[in-house]
Design a protein around this nucleic acid. Structure first.
Lengths: 250, 250
DNA sequence: TGAAAGCGAGAGCGATGCTCTCTCAAGAAA
DNA sequence: TTTCTTGAGAGAGCATCGCTCTCGCTTTCA
């Protein structure tokens, strides 16, 4: 049952020992390490998908990998560290999905690109509800996002704002010009300028609202707050996108 | 340390035995039971407030109450049952807060009433962030809202819609009449009519959006998604309310 | 070739949710 | 008043969890 005689294994083929140890001549220690980390995350994602975030247990991951639980602590010092890695991956996975969808829609009108990007967000969220919760649901207590995560988290806003900035000249709903003048009083305009490139400041509030509305909608949909009021969320989402597009002048 | 000789306690005064048992002549069994339930919930709320929902442990509640953990199972068969009771209370507490705020604002204009109600939601959420998460954050796995909870959950929407229906005749942003005609295709119009009394159907989508936007904003604010973009959430919230009021024609 | 570092096994600690049995007190029935 | 039923807490126990520590083996590197 244990794996005392790794020397007996066929040297040419890297493979899993019964006990989970990665061995074989053609897999360096570093490679084995990244492979193990990938496996841990893969199994964790599967576990989260079936039991939710709170159902993720290091011991069960270990059991699944036919490894003793203490072995996992070589790779993640803490359950929260594992979650942090998964959060990071989720942001990037979502961001990549939306970027991909937008890239394919480069010839569309601004309004259509906006809708396509928003639908990509929703599609990802509905396909990965628990990973969505990981990043947009209740945060894990004491969790503080590392800097790398912050960057990954801006990928979706960046796509939306690129669409916005490409759509200059179209006339939005009447803007409250007075309200837009003191925008630097309550927004981090310096940071926002790096994301909302070429978007006029009068639009910042509405841009943030649109971003917030998309995720607010998904939280309501996924968490059941639309039960009893919204019968067909697909259609409702399109209606919301219509309103948002009008608000943004798309 | 144990409480074998309750007969020796002063009969006239109901009091806690050292071991947690409620005793005394003037406290009936039923009264003692409701008192214990109230205490359990009170201690649980305090625990949630300091450690978050996931930090709520029946054993710690029991310790706090100087009672053995198994005793709590006389009142809540499961940790999730306790959470369900707390969710119910949270909905009602939030609903009552907003109703109270709106009742005091009956002489204000529709726009002001809308803002006052929305601010009441936000104030409650910021004062009870963990209870907010309980009802608007990631749901507990396998949780299904009992009917009584559903009713409690509609108290806030009811207030908002009452304000809306009282504000007929004001002209909203241009409504997409075409989009509003097939509202019964994707909304539960029968159920919505009982909440959105006297609100025209063309407004249903925007009314739902406003409701959703308020809570979406709070989730973003409380869960840190505005870090790096919104400097002063108080002001930003007012801007959002301006936009929503305009959208609703208030 | 030999020292250093990485990794998994395994035992163990304190904590969790939950179950079960035991005992005793309170309320209802006689 | 006495008997019987029911409700409540105590306490032991089970399976599980996150996490720590030591041990022995293997890979890596000087």
């Amino acid at each position: 049952m244990t794996c005392k005689s790794t020397a007996l294994l066929i040297a040419g083929a890297a493979r899993w020992c019964d006990t989970g140890r990665v061995t074989g001549r053609n897999l360096s220690r570093a490679e084995a390490r990244t492979a193990q980390i990938a496996t841990i995350k893969k199994v964790s994602r599967a576990l989260i998908a079936s039991k939710g975030v709170s159902g993720l247990s290091l011991r069960e991951v270990a059991r699944e990998m036919r490894v003793v639980s203490s072995a996992l602590y070589r790779y993640f010092a803490t359950r929260d560290d594992l979650l942090t890695a998964l959060i990071f991956d989720a942001y990037n996975d979502l961001g990549a999905s939306v970027e991909r969808a937008d890239a394919k829609a480069s010839s569309e009108s601004a309004g259509d690109r906006f809708r396509i990007a928003a639908r990509a967000v929703r599609r990802w969220a509905k396909r990965h509800p628990h990973e969505y919760s990981l990043i947009y649901g209740t945060p894990v207590p004491n969790y503080v996002a590392p800097v790398t995560t912050i960057e990954a988290a801006t990928r979706v806003p960046r796509v939306l704002s690129k669409i916005l900035s490409n759509a200059q000249g179209v006339h939005p709903f009447p803007l409250n010009v007075e309200a837009a003048r003191d925008v630097d009083q309550f927004l981090e305009v310096d940071a926002l300028e790096e994301v909302l490139v070429d978007v006029p400041r009068e639009m910042y509030v509405r841009a943030l609202m649109a971003w917030n509305m998309i995720f607010g909608f998904l939280s309501f949909e996924l968490y059941g707050h639309y039960v009893g009021s919204v019968k067909n969320a697909n259609v409702m989402f399109e209606k919301v996108l219509d309103e948002l597009a009008a608000l943004l002048g798309l």
